[in-house]
Design a protein around this nucleic acid. Structure first.
Length: 462
RNA sequence: UCCGGUGUGGCGCAAUGGUAGCGCAUGCGGCUGUUAACCGCAGUGUUACAGGUUCGAGUCCUGUCACCGGAGCCA
């Protein structure tokens, strides 16, 4: 059995008969007759220093291959390092090479590379410190999301990826078809989807919310956590065509309960990462964003500010800040407005709720004032919207009326309306963009660098 | 999609319209319980692509493509 670097570095006592397998990060030769080889196996940020005596039988054959990027297996003894810089080192007794890497051609050098360059070599970038750390934190967050909901009795629900329902207002869908696009069947000048695989037009899901509601109104509390697709031509550091979304949906939750859960959720995740990803988080704090630890602790330690949309508009109107987009009741809040509120006014996460009915989708519950709906957005400083949610309209008549106003065909949503027809209940939910969460937690500036293989317009490589 | 910026050795960058350089990496040599090692020497270029202006274009102009930042759409 091999030993993982992470376990070795945590040892309390010296160990003999250790076996390490991993990739060479750097190699430094000493004319004292030995070499220092740093091995990383991805189990943690740090590598382990291997000391290889040139008199070793296996050294002569291995030496030409001990370059950055090569994969090796090393047997030896874990001993206290006599030099500064590390507590432990591995005194090698046998070195074997799995795969060498031509030093003249291997693209990763033992120095910092730009993220733009690393995106072009997405198959090798996980071997860098930053991407190793990002993916370990991403993994911990995914685990932690399940832990949060499972501990509270939520049921993990798998909603379909191929679907006919476009969660209105969520964005453009990718079409899924097996039709021959060079000669599709036509009827009355229109493409006849009756001949398509599913017998009707289908696409990749933009949200599992509507399906989530179905199961919340049976199992009470559910959550989804899966890939989501948007065919928007968005070219920003916060948008992907394929991203992962977490969507809890709870029966008997009103908007206030929804906001409580969202706040508890975010704080739980941040606290968990601070406690369980210390080494990686210290790396981000040192190399990526000098204030990220402070920012996360600040979020964990303080109550989120909660304000009505109307009050947010009032604050923006009376502020002396110069905005590119003017502010008036009924308008959508722009990025600059959201940033101003979370970064300048409150300097912490802000939940804005009770939005005008006109600018929100049909399924959000209408307030008694008939002007606003029970919608809420959680805004984080420097990132913007991370969560969007609402209490859902549970009154059949009101839902019908709102669908007509937004020119939607109730026939297409017959099953959704049935939920209000039979045993309707107040219920709420929200969606959290997983990559935006990873972005915020790691301090990484571009969303393309917190997902293993980013999908953006014109990019589906690897 | 819109606005702005940038495309130069493997990587990061420089070069008033006048002989394309520097750092890192790489190779060789030296030195050292080294650790983003250090010292010396060496190799490395269709200056994104296609046109144009000019005696002369990496530099100016036009178009295309790519990437980055911001905006919109949103999570």
């Amino acid at each position: 059995m091999r030993d993982k670097v992470k376990d070795l570095l945590q040892q309390e006592e010296e160990q003999s008969g250790v076996l390490v397998k991993g990739w060479v990060r750097t190699r430094r030769d000493s004319k004292g007759g030995f070499s220092f080889i740093e091995i990383n196996d991805g189990s943690c940020l740090a590598g382990i220093q291997v000391v290889a005596d040139h008199k070793l039988e296996s050294y002569a054959s291995a030496s030409p291959h001990l370059h950055t990027g090569s994969c090796v297996a090393i047997k030896g003894n874990l001993v206290v390092s006599p030099a500064k810089g590390q507590k432990w080192e591995l005194q090698a007794s046998e070195i074997s090479v799995y795969g060498s890497a031509d030093a003249e051609k291997y693209p990763l050098q033992k120095k910092q590379h730009s993220f733009e360059f690393l995106r072009e070599i997405a198959h090798l970038r996980p071997r860098t410190n930053t991407f190793g750390a990002v993916m370990r934190v991403r993994n911990r967050l995914a685990y932690s999301i399940h832990k949060f909901f499972q501990d509270r009795g939520f049921v993990y629900l798998h909603t379909p990826i191929i679907t006919t329902s476009d969660c209105e207002g969520a964005g453009e869908m990718f079409q899924v078809t097996t039709l021959d696009l060079s000669k599709p069947p036509v009827n009355d000048g229109k493409i006849d989807y009756g001949h398509d695989f599913f017998g009707e037009r289908t696409g990749l899901t933009v949200s599992g919310q509507l399906e989530g509601e179905i199961y919340a109104l049976a199992l009470s509390d559910i959550y989804t956590f899966g890939p989501t697709f948007r065919a928007e031509n968005s070219n920003t550091s916060r948008h992907l065509a394929e991203f992962w979304m977490v969507e809890p949906e709870m029966a008997f939750y009103e908007l206030e309960d929804d906001m409580d859960l969202a706040e508890e959720f975010v704080k739980f995740l941040f606290r968990d990462v601070l406690e369980n990803c210390q080494e990686d988080m210290e790396f981000f704090n040192k190399r990526i964003n000098k204030t990220i630890l402070e920012t996360l602790r600040n979020v964990v330690d303080h109550e989120f500010e909660r304000i009505h949309y109307s009050d947010a508009i009032h604050l923006l109107e009376k502020s002396s800040e110069k905005f590119i987009y003017s502010v008036e009741w009924g308008c959508n809040l722009q990025s600059e407005h959201e940033r101003y509120l979370s970064e300048k006014v409150f300097k912490k996460p802000v939940i804005i709720y009770n939005y005008p009915e006109e600018i929100k989708p049909f399924y959000m519950k209408l307030n008694e004032d008939h002007e606003t709906v029970r919608a809420m957005d959680v805004l984080l400083p420097n990132l913007g919207e991370i969560i969007g949610g609402s209490q859902r309209e549970d009154d059949l008549d009101v839902l019908h009326k709102r669908m007509r106003e937004k020119e939607l065909d109730p026939e297409e949503y017959w099953w959704y309306l049935d939920l209000r027809r039979y045993g309707s209940a107040p219920h709420s939910g929200f969606g959290l963009g997983f990559e935006r969460l990873v972005q915020f937690v790691t301090g990484m500036e571009n969303i393309r660098d917190v997902i293993p293989f980013p999908r953006t317009p014109k990019h589906a490589k690897f």
